[in-house]
Deep mutational scan, measured.
Amino acid sequence: ATNIVGKVKWYNSTKNAGFIEQDNGGKDVFVHKSAVDAAGLHSLEEGQDVIFDLEEKQGKAYAVNLRIK
Results as ranks from 00 to 15, higher is better:
Ala1Pro: 10
Ala1Thr: 13
Ala1His: 13
Ala1Lys: 15
Ala1Trp: 12
Ala1Asp: 09
Thr2Cys: 13
Thr2Val: 13
Thr2Glu: 09
Thr2Ala: 09
Thr2Lys: 14
Thr2Asn: 10
Thr2Gln: 12
Thr2Asp: 06
Asn3Met: 06
Asn3Thr: 05
Asn3Tyr: 06
Asn3Trp: 06
Asn3Leu: 05
Asn3Ala: 08
Ile4Gln: 10
Ile4Thr: 04
Ile4Phe: 08
Ile4Ala: 06
Ile4Ser: 06
Val5Lys: 15
Val5Ser: 15
Gly6Trp: 02
Gly6Phe: 02
Gly6Thr: 01
Gly6Met: 02
Gly6Cys: 03
Lys7Val: 08
Lys7Tyr: 05
Lys7Gly: 01
Lys7Glu: 01
Lys7Met: 05
Lys7Ile: 07
Lys7His: 09
Lys7Asp: 01
Val8Thr: 02
Val8Trp: 07
Val8Gly: 01
Val8Ala: 01
Val8Glu: 00
Val8Lys: 00
Lys9Cys: 05
Lys9Ile: 06
Lys9Val: 05
Lys9Thr: 03
Lys9Phe: 03
Lys9Pro: 00
Lys9Asp: 01
Lys9Asn: 02
Lys9His: 04
Trp10Asp: 02
Trp10Met: 05
Trp10His: 05
Trp10Tyr: 08
Trp10Val: 05
Trp10Phe: 09
Trp10Leu: 04
Trp10Cys: 10
Trp10Lys: 04
Trp10Thr: 05
Trp10Ser: 05
Tyr11Cys: 05
Tyr11Asp: 01
Tyr11Glu: 01
Asn12Gly: 03
Asn12Phe: 07
Asn12His: 08
Asn12Ile: 07
Asn12Val: 06
Asn12Pro: 02
Asn12Trp: 08
Ser13Pro: 14
Ser13Phe: 10
Ser13Lys: 14
Ser13Thr: 12
Ser13Arg: 13
Thr14Val: 12
Thr14Ser: 13
Thr14Asn: 12
Thr14His: 13
Thr14Cys: 14
Lys15Trp: 14
Lys15Ile: 13
Lys15His: 11
Lys15Ser: 09
Lys15Phe: 13
Lys15Pro: 02
Lys15Arg: 12
Asn16Gly: 15
Asn16Glu: 11
Asn16Val: 04
Asn16Ile: 03
Asn16Arg: 15
Asn16Met: 13
Asn16Ala: 12
Asn16Pro: 03
Ala17Asn: 09
Ala17His: 15
Ala17Pro: 01
Ala17Arg: 11
Ala17Lys: 09
Ala17Thr: 10
Ala17Asp: 03
Ala17Gly: 15
Ala17Ile: 15
Gly18Leu: 05
Gly18Trp: 09
Gly18Val: 03
Gly18Pro: 01
Gly18Ile: 04
Gly18Thr: 02
Gly18Phe: 06
Phe19Leu: 11
Phe19Val: 12
Phe19Ala: 07
Phe19Lys: 07
Phe19Glu: 07
Phe19His: 04
Ile20Val: 04
Ile20His: 00
Ile20Ser: 00
Ile20Leu: 10
Ile20Asn: 00
Ile20Glu: 01
Glu21Cys: 13
Glu21Thr: 15
Glu21Leu: 12
Glu21Gly: 11
Glu21Lys: 15
Gln22Tyr: 15
Gln22Gly: 07
Gln22Met: 13
Gln22His: 08
Asp23Ile: 15
Asp23Gln: 15
Asp23Asn: 14
Asp23Gly: 14
Asp23Phe: 15
Asn24Trp: 09
Asn24Phe: 09
Asn24Tyr: 08
Asn24Gln: 09
Asn24Asp: 10
Asn24Met: 10
Asn24Leu: 09
Asn24Pro: 06
Gly25Met: 07
Gly25Gln: 07
Gly25Leu: 07
Gly25Pro: 06
Gly25Cys: 08
Gly25Ser: 08
Gly26Phe: 08
Gly26Val: 07
Gly26His: 09
Gly26Arg: 09
Gly26Ile: 06
Gly26Met: 09
Gly26Ala: 10
Gly26Gln: 10
Lys27Gly: 10
Lys27Arg: 12
Lys27Asn: 10
Asp28Gln: 10
Asp28Gly: 09
Asp28Met: 12
Asp28Trp: 14
Asp28Cys: 11
Asp28Ser: 08
Asp28Thr: 08
Val29Ile: 11
Val29Gly: 01
Val29Arg: 02
Val29Ala: 04
Val29His: 03
Phe30Ser: 03
Phe30Gly: 03
Phe30Glu: 06
Phe30Cys: 06
Phe30Val: 05
Phe30Pro: 06
Phe30His: 06
Phe30Gln: 05
Phe30Asn: 03
Val31Lys: 00
Val31Tyr: 03
Val31Trp: 02
Val31Phe: 11
His32Met: 10
His32Thr: 09
His32Cys: 11
His32Pro: 07
His32Arg: 07
His32Val: 06
His32Lys: 07
Lys33Cys: 08
Lys33Phe: 09
Lys33Val: 08
Lys33Pro: 06
Lys33Leu: 06
Lys33Met: 06
Ser34Trp: 11
Ser34Asp: 09
Ser34Thr: 11
Ser34Gln: 09
Ser34Ile: 08
Ser34Arg: 10
Ser34Lys: 10
Ala35Tyr: 04
Ala35Gln: 10
Ala35Phe: 04
Ala35Lys: 03
Ala35Thr: 09
Ala35Val: 08
Ala35Gly: 03
Ala35Cys: 05
Val36Pro: 00
Val36Met: 09
Val36Ile: 11
Val36Cys: 03
Val36Ser: 01
Asp37Gln: 14
Asp37Leu: 15
Asp37Asn: 13
Asp37Pro: 02
Asp37His: 14
Asp37Gly: 07
Asp37Lys: 13
Ala38Phe: 07
Ala38Gln: 09
Ala38Cys: 09
Ala38Ile: 08
Ala38Tyr: 06
Ala38Gly: 06
Ala38Glu: 08
Ala39Leu: 07
Ala39Gln: 03
Ala39Thr: 05
Ala39Phe: 03
Ala39His: 02
Gly40Asn: 09
Gly40Thr: 04
Gly40Trp: 04
Gly40Arg: 07
Gly40His: 08
Leu41Asp: 01
Leu41Trp: 11
Leu41Ala: 05
Leu41Thr: 03
Leu41Glu: 04
Leu41Met: 08
His42Ala: 13
His42Tyr: 12
His42Lys: 13
His42Cys: 14
His42Met: 12
His42Val: 13
Ser43Leu: 10
Ser43Asp: 11
Ser43Arg: 12
Ser43Cys: 11
Ser43Trp: 12
Leu44Asn: 00
Leu44Ile: 08
Leu44Arg: 00
Leu44Phe: 05
Leu44Met: 05
Leu44Gly: 00
Glu45His: 14
Glu45Asp: 10
Glu45Ile: 14
Glu45Met: 13
Glu45Leu: 13
Glu45Pro: 08
Glu46His: 13
Glu46Asp: 09
Glu46Tyr: 12
Glu46Arg: 15
Glu46Lys: 15
Glu46Ile: 15
Gly47Ser: 05
Gly47Gln: 04
Gly47Tyr: 04
Gly47Lys: 05
Gly47Ile: 02
Gly47Thr: 03
Gln48Phe: 07
Gln48Ser: 08
Gln48Val: 10
Gln48Asn: 06
Gln48Glu: 08
Gln48Ile: 09
Gln48Ala: 09
Gln48Asp: 09
Gln48His: 05
Gln48Leu: 10
Asp49Phe: 15
Asp49Thr: 15
Asp49Tyr: 15
Asp49Cys: 15
Asp49Pro: 14
Asp49Val: 15
Asp49Gly: 14
Asp49Arg: 15
Val50Tyr: 03
Val50Thr: 02
Val50Gln: 00
Val50Gly: 00
Val50Arg: 00
Val50Ile: 13
Ile51Ser: 04
Ile51Asn: 02
Ile51Thr: 08
Ile51Ala: 04
Ile51Met: 10
Phe52Trp: 01
Phe52Thr: 00
Phe52Gly: 00
Phe52Cys: 02
Phe52Ser: 00
Asp53Pro: 00
Asp53Cys: 04
Asp53Gly: 02
Asp53Thr: 04
Asp53Leu: 02
Leu54Arg: 06
Leu54Phe: 05
Leu54Ile: 15
Leu54Trp: 05
Leu54His: 02
Leu54Cys: 09
Leu54Ala: 03
Leu54Ser: 03
Glu55Pro: 01
Glu55His: 11
Glu55Cys: 14
Glu55Leu: 13
Glu56Asp: 08
Glu56Gln: 11
Glu56Gly: 06
Glu56Val: 15
Glu56Lys: 11
Glu56Met: 14
Glu56Asn: 10
Glu56Trp: 15
Glu56Tyr: 15
Glu56Ser: 11
Glu56Pro: 03
Lys57Trp: 12
Lys57Cys: 13
Lys57Gly: 08
Lys57Pro: 03
Lys57Ala: 10
Lys57Val: 11
Lys57Gln: 10
Gln58Trp: 14
Gln58Met: 12
Gln58Lys: 12
Gln58Phe: 13
Gln58Arg: 13
Gln58Gly: 14
Gly59Val: 01
Gly59Trp: 04
Gly59Lys: 05
Gly59Leu: 04
Gly59Asp: 06
Gly59Pro: 01
Gly59Phe: 05
Lys60Gln: 09
Lys60Pro: 02
Lys60Trp: 11
Lys60Ala: 07
Ala61Tyr: 15
Ala61Gln: 13
Ala61Cys: 13
Ala61His: 12
Tyr62Trp: 13
Tyr62Arg: 06
Tyr62Gln: 09
Tyr62Gly: 03
Tyr62Ile: 06
Tyr62Cys: 08
Tyr62Thr: 07
Ala63Leu: 04
Ala63Asn: 01
Ala63Cys: 04
Ala63Asp: 02
Ala63Pro: 01
Ala63Phe: 01
Ala63Thr: 02
Val64Asp: 02
Val64Leu: 04
Val64Asn: 03
Val64His: 04
Val64Thr: 10
Val64Tyr: 06
Val64Trp: 07
Asn65Glu: 03
Asn65Cys: 05
Asn65Phe: 04
Asn65Arg: 08
Asn65Leu: 02
Asn65Trp: 02
Asn65Ile: 02
Leu66Val: 08
Leu66Thr: 01
Arg67Asn: 04
Arg67Ser: 05
Arg67His: 06
Arg67Met: 05
Arg67Gln: 08
Arg67Val: 07
Arg67Phe: 04
Ile68Lys: 06
Ile68Val: 13
Ile68Thr: 09
Ile68Glu: 05
Ile68Gly: 04
Ile68Asp: 05
Ile68Met: 09
Lys69Met: 13
Lys69Asp: 11
Lys69Asn: 12
Lys69Arg: 12
Lys69Gln: 13
Lys69Ile: 15
Lys69Gly: 11
Lys69Trp: 12
Lys69Cys: 13
Lys69Val: 14
